[in-house]
Design a protein around this nucleic acid. Structure first.
Length: 193
DNA sequence: CATGGGATTGACT
DNA sequence: GTCAATCCCATGC
C-alpha cells in the first residue's frame, strides 16, 4: 500500500480497497464493504467546509479519519485524494482474519458474522478509537495492506450508501460480491465494478 | 451559549 | 418493526 494509492479519486480507492487487509494490534480483517465520500456531495462531512472536525478529511491521503457517530460508535475512514480535497473511504465491514479471540472478547459475542459486519462493530472488534484520528495508515498503529493476490471475489458497485439522507442516489457503496460478512442491508446482485 | 442531528447498534414489542 | 442510548461539534441566536 502506497501514498499514491490513496491520492487517487476516492471512488477508485473505495473500489480497490475491497479485498485489502486492515490490521491493528493483533487483530486483522479483509475489507468486504466500503463507501466513498467526497466534499463535492452533501452527504460528506467535508461538504460543510474546513472545520476542526473535518480537518483530517482535508489532510494528506493515507491517514485515518475516525469520528463518533450517534454518540456511541467509532467509524473508520481512509483519507484519499491530494491534500486540500476533503474525501475519504468509510470501511463498513471486514471478514475476520486474525486475533479472533480478542475480537470476541471486545464484542462479547461468538458468531464470526457478528464480529466485524458493520462500521461500528469492526472498530470495536479491532479496538480502534477516536484517539487514532489522523494517524498514518502506512506507518502507524493501523495498517492497510494490499489485496491478497489470490483474492478472487468480484467487487460489486451499484448499491446506494447506507444511513444517509442526502445524495442518496450516488452508487458509491462497494461490496465483495456474495460475501457473508457484508453488513445489512445486503445489496441485490447487480453490476460489477 | 443552547440546540439539534448524525456514515449505528442492539434490545425489546 | 420500533426506539432509545449518548457525544461531538456546526450552526444560529
Amino acid at each position: 500500500m502506497t501514498r499514491a494509492f490513496f491520492r487517487r479519486p476516492v471512488v477508485e480507492v473505495a473500489r480497490d480497497l475491497v479485498g485489502c487487509v486492515v490490521r491493528h494490534g493483533g487483530t486483522a480483517g479483509v475489507i468486504v464493504e466500503t463507501e466513498a465520500y467526497h466534499d463535492s456531495e452533501s452527504a460528506c462531512h467535508a461538504h460543510a467546509g474546513l472545520t476542526p472536525r473535518t480537518a483530517t478529511l482535508f489532510g494528506a491521503p493515507g491517514h485515518a479519519y475516525v469520528y463518533r457517530s450517534y454518540g456511541i460508535h467509532a467509524m473508520l475512514n481512509a483519507v484519499t485524494e491530494p491534500e486540500g480535497v476533503g474525501s475519504a473511504v468509510l470501511i463498513r465491514a471486514l471478514e475476520p482474519l486474525a486475533g479472533l479471540e480478542a475480537m470476541r472478547q471486545r464484542r462479547g459475542l461468538e458468531r464470526l458474522e457478528d464480529l466485524c459486519s458493520g462500521p461500528g462493530r469492526l472498530t470495536q472488534a479491532l479496538g480502534i478509537g477516536l484517539d487514532l484520528n489522523g494517524s498514518d495508515l502506512l506507518d502507524g498503529p493501523i495498517r492497510f495492506e494490499p489485496r491478497a493476490p489470490d483474492f478472487d471475489g468480484r467487487v460489486q458497485a451499484t448499491a446506494p450508501r447506507v444511513g444517509i439522507t442526502k445524495a442518496v442516489e450516488l452508487p458509491w457503496r462497494f461490496t465483495a460480491e456474495g460475501n457473508r460478512f457484508v453488513s445489512r442491508p445486503r445489496p441485490a446482485a447487480g453490476a460489477l465494478a
